[in-house]
Simulated scan of single mutants.
Amino acid sequence: MSWRRPGWAVTAVALLGTTGLGLVAVGVSTDPPRPPRPQAADGTGPARSAPPVPPLHRAEPVDVRIPAIGVRARVVPVGADAGGRLEVPPLDRPTLAGWYRHGASPGETGNAVLVGHVDSAAGPAVFFDLGRLRAGDTVRVTRADASIATFAVDAVGSYPKDRFPTDLVYGPSDAPGLRLITCGGRFDRDSGDYVDNVVVFATRLP
């Protein structure tokens, strides 16, 4: 997914909902907001900086587990369509998470992106409780080579669709990071869309 420096018009990926199903569309943001400042796991103050973690080689993710919210899901690769819109797992398979295959794989240098539906016609979907995560919660991603990349949540943000933090999600990073994205906020029945996006920012642990 393309990105440009802050201050330029950027291609913003925003998750939408249609009849309660998470979809992806393209919007525009000129000044993406910063995520909340990472807090210590006990909520007492800013998280301490950790030593850099050596990156892993590239390997496709196959499974994601988030113990704090009871997520254990298969991961499938997704890309972007001809219009530059991020693809998502099939609407009739809401328990799957999708990995943006044109970006970093979990554990590589850069921000790996996993996307999932918040709900479906049948009820809650894979990332229904994503907004409940807190700093210090862990995310474990099993990769195709049987290695596991473990990440600690730094911050969780909710963003209006027209102010999606594109650069923070898809922009460059010199450390192995992870971004989890789903729909959020109020469901607008008139438009059939959720009004916000929930984004989880995480950094790989040793």
Rank of each mutant, 00 (worst) to 15 (best):
S2F: 12
G7N: 00
G7A: 00
W8N: 13
W8T: 04
T11E: 15
T11Y: 07
T11N: 12
V13Q: 11
V13N: 13
L15H: 07
L16T: 04
L16F: 09
L23V: 12
A25M: 06
A25D: 14
V26W: 05
G27A: 12
G27V: 02
S29Y: 04
S29V: 08
D31C: 01
P32T: 02
P33F: 12
P33H: 12
R34K: 14
R34P: 06
R34A: 14
P36I: 13
R37F: 10
P38I: 01
P38S: 11
Q39P: 02
Q39S: 15
A40L: 13
A40S: 12
A40N: 05
A40P: 02
A41Q: 05
D42M: 02
D42L: 09
G43W: 06
T44A: 09
G45C: 03
G45A: 09
G45W: 10
G45Q: 06
S49N: 08
V53F: 04
P54R: 09
A59C: 01
D63Q: 08
V64T: 04
A68R: 07
I69P: 04
I69E: 04
V71Y: 08
A73P: 02
V78K: 03
A80W: 05
A80G: 14
A82E: 14
G83Y: 02
R85M: 06
L86F: 11
E87Y: 09
V88M: 05
P89V: 14
P89D: 04
L91K: 10
R93N: 07
P94Y: 13
P94W: 11
T95M: 10
A97Y: 01
H102Y: 14
H102D: 14
G103D: 03
G103Y: 10
P106R: 04
T109E: 03
T109N: 02
G110P: 01
N111T: 15
N111I: 06
V113S: 11
V113K: 12
G116L: 05
G116F: 11
H117T: 13
V118A: 15
A121Q: 09
A122V: 07
V126E: 08
V126G: 08
F128T: 14
L130T: 10
R132I: 06
R132A: 14
L133S: 01
L133F: 00
L133R: 02
R134H: 04
A135R: 00
T138R: 15
V139T: 01
V139C: 08
R140L: 10
R140F: 07
R140N: 10
V141L: 00
A146T: 09
S147W: 10
I148N: 05
I148W: 11
T150V: 12
T150C: 11
F151A: 06
D154T: 00
D154A: 15
A155I: 15
A155H: 13
V156D: 13
S158R: 07
F164T: 09
L168C: 09
Y170F: 14
Y170D: 08
G171Y: 01
G171S: 07
G171A: 13
P172L: 00
S173V: 00
D174K: 00
A175H: 00
A175Q: 03
P176C: 01
P176V: 01
L178H: 08
I181Y: 15
I181C: 12
T182D: 06
C183D: 06
G184S: 11
G184H: 08
G184I: 00
F187C: 12
D188W: 03
R189N: 08
D190T: 15
V195D: 09
D196V: 05
D196P: 00
D196E: 11
V198T: 13
V200Q: 06
F201W: 07
